[in-house]
Amino acid sequence: MSTSEIATVLAWHDALNESDLDTLLALSSDDIEIAGPAGAAQGLGALREWASTAALTLNPGRMFVHSGVVVVEEVPGPADAPGQVAAGAAAFRVVHDQVTAIFRHPDLASALAATDLTEQDVVS
């Protein structure tokens, strides 16, 4: 387990939830890949646009990590929060303390299956 990878993903969530775009972009690689149910995009410009218009809060739950991949169970913010989304999970690729990819999944099981992580990779 890498404390650095976990810290990067937690800081990324904090920056997103606080609408701190400068920190969010600093924690992300120039060519970050972003994918989810609504489609895919690449680059800091796409991340900035998504983060500035999404108006959502995603609170990290259980985390799983192995070889630079971090899967996070995500719980949406308060029910009255704008941009409310369903609970789900995201798979992050972290390289040199920067998020290089984030893929949102509808649930934890599909995120774990897509990354070949298992319950043995849970952060305790």
Rank of each mutant, 00 (worst) to 15 (best):
G68M: 06
G43K: 00
A35C: 10
V65F: 04
Q42L: 13
A54E: 13
E73M: 10
G61E: 01
L27Y: 08
N17C: 09
Q42H: 08
G36Y: 04
A55M: 15
D80W: 06
S19Y: 14
A41W: 14
R48I: 07
V75S: 15
S67K: 15
R62E: 01
S28T: 05
A41L: 11
R62F: 02
A38C: 11
E49P: 13
N59K: 12
L47W: 06
A46T: 01
I34L: 12
R62Q: 00
A46G: 02
Q84L: 13
A38H: 13
P60G: 04
P76A: 01
T57S: 11
R48W: 10
L21K: 09
T57N: 10
P78A: 14
T53F: 08
A35L: 02
E18R: 14
S29R: 10
G39C: 03
S19E: 13
L58P: 08
P76L: 00
R48C: 11
H66I: 06
A35I: 05
G83N: 00
E49K: 15
F64I: 13
L47Y: 03
L27E: 02
H66L: 15
S67T: 13
G68K: 06
T23Y: 01
S28Q: 05
I34Q: 08
M63Y: 13
M63H: 15
G45H: 09
G68L: 01
Q84G: 12
T23W: 09
T53K: 02
S19C: 09
D80M: 10
G61N: 01
L25I: 11
S28K: 07
A51M: 02
P78Y: 15
A51C: 06
L56P: 08
P60A: 04
D31L: 03
A26D: 15
P37V: 15
P78I: 07
E49G: 15
L44F: 02
A26L: 13
A55T: 07
L24W: 02
V72P: 11
Q84N: 11
P82W: 03
G39W: 04
V70D: 00
Q42C: 07
S67R: 14
A51K: 03
D30P: 07
L44V: 03
N17G: 09
G77A: 00
A26T: 10
A54W: 06
G68D: 07
I32N: 03
A46F: 04
L21E: 06
E18C: 11
G36M: 08
Q42P: 11
G83K: 05
S19K: 15
E33C: 10
A40T: 08
P37T: 10
Q84C: 08
L47D: 13
D31Q: 04
V71P: 05
V69K: 10
A41I: 11
G68Q: 05
A55G: 09
T53N: 12
S67P: 10
S28D: 07
V65W: 08
A15M: 00
D20I: 00
V75R: 14
L58F: 14
D22K: 07
D20M: 02
V72G: 04
W50S: 11
E33G: 12
G77Y: 04
L21D: 05
P37S: 14
G83M: 04
A26H: 08
L27K: 01
L25A: 12
